Computed example of a mutant assay.
Amino acid sequence: MSKVISRDGTPLAYARTGEGEPLILVGGAFSTGTAEEPLANLLAPRFSVVTYDRRGRGDSGDTAPYAVAREVEDLAALIEELGGSASLYGMSSGGALVLRAAAAGLRAPRIAVYEPPFTVVPGTRAEKAAYTERLNTLLDEGHRGAAVELFLSAVGMPAEFVGQMKRAPVWRSFEALAPSLAYDDAVVGDGTVPTDRLADVTQPLLVVSGGASPDVMRDAARLTATSAQDGRHRSLPHQTHDVDPRELAPVLAEFFAAAA
């Protein structure tokens, strides 16, 4: 992997594949750049696709204290490395980060996100605040496994499945990435659709959701799209939050090709 240095001195590991207009893929919770490789390989025939380890993950560094603005600066450093302009795609909380970056004015001709983890359910701010406090307490005390359990429970994973995962090899990698859960949590904010911030997003925005995802996620995706100045929503039939990259790639390719 190649490295680029962010504004605060943090090294970021990235990989580039394909030829064409630059496109950066931004992963969500528990993901490093390798998680986006299947999608990157499908898009590489038409774009120069960059995957990267967000700060605090994989081969990238980390610099305390964390701030969402530093992750926006990370994307700015990657964009500068690619020539000063690159479209952005973000998965889940990576999508929330992409929207933050776009609202901050980064040079991205087009942006797309898949199911950023916002909600339109009233009265959820207090519940989200309690989750944030508990998550940060567990991480501050070094209880990474408990922090992973808290996150998985919060996203609706049944306790029996969590128990099975704790006995699987993947659990060790989850614990290694546990501190970054606080970063994702900060990016998402209070959990509601950030309509005021989205009003500052001026470039074409595509918000994709799964047709088989819960109504609350699809409703949040639609509101995210309509809150931006040039947003549109697309639903992928039979897909859930665990979207099949083979179904997603053609939709993204069509959208991003329009910028060429």
Rank of each mutant, 00 (worst) to 15 (best):
G189P: 12
A76V: 13
P116M: 09
L106N: 11
P22K: 09
K128I: 07
W171F: 07
G9N: 12
E80W: 00
T240I: 04
L78Q: 11
A259D: 06
T132I: 12
A101E: 07
L82R: 13
S209F: 00
P194W: 07
F174G: 00
A101H: 08
P45K: 11
V68G: 08
P122G: 01
D140A: 15
R197H: 13
D8L: 05
A178W: 02
S235L: 12
G20T: 01
T226N: 05
S60K: 10
A104Y: 06
A228R: 06
L152N: 09
L138P: 03
F118I: 01
E37M: 14
E73M: 04
A67F: 09
W171Y: 03
G142Y: 10
G84I: 10
D53K: 01
P245C: 13
D74V: 03
S153E: 15
L12V: 09
A182L: 07
L43C: 10
D196C: 00
L248Q: 10
R234Y: 14
A258K: 13
A168L: 00
F255C: 04
G191S: 05
A102H: 05
A258N: 02
R107E: 13
A221Y: 02
P38M: 03
D230F: 00
F161E: 15
G83V: 05
F174R: 06
L97W: 02
P245I: 10
V26W: 04
A103C: 02
E160T: 14
T119A: 08
A96K: 08
R167A: 15
R234D: 13
S93H: 02
D244C: 02
V4I: 12
A15D: 15
D185T: 15
V72P: 08
F174A: 04
P38R: 00
R110P: 11
S31I: 01
R234I: 07
R100V: 05
A101V: 02
A253N: 08
P38N: 02
G142L: 11
T17V: 14
T192M: 03
S2L: 07
A15W: 11
G90F: 12
R246Q: 15
Y89T: 01
A168I: 02
A13I: 04
A104S: 15
L181G: 00
D74Q: 05
G61P: 11
A104I: 07
T195Q: 14
L97R: 04
V68K: 06
G58S: 09
P38V: 00
L223Q: 15
A112C: 09
A159R: 15
L106Y: 09
D230I: 07
V208W: 05
R172T: 10
G83A: 05
P22R: 06
R46M: 01
E133H: 10
R54Q: 13
S48G: 14
I24Q: 05
H143M: 02
S85A: 14
T34A: 15
P204H: 11
F30T: 00
N41F: 01
V216K: 07
V162Y: 06
A253I: 01
E81D: 13
A67M: 06
L236R: 03
V120A: 06
E80K: 07
Y114N: 00
Q229S: 14
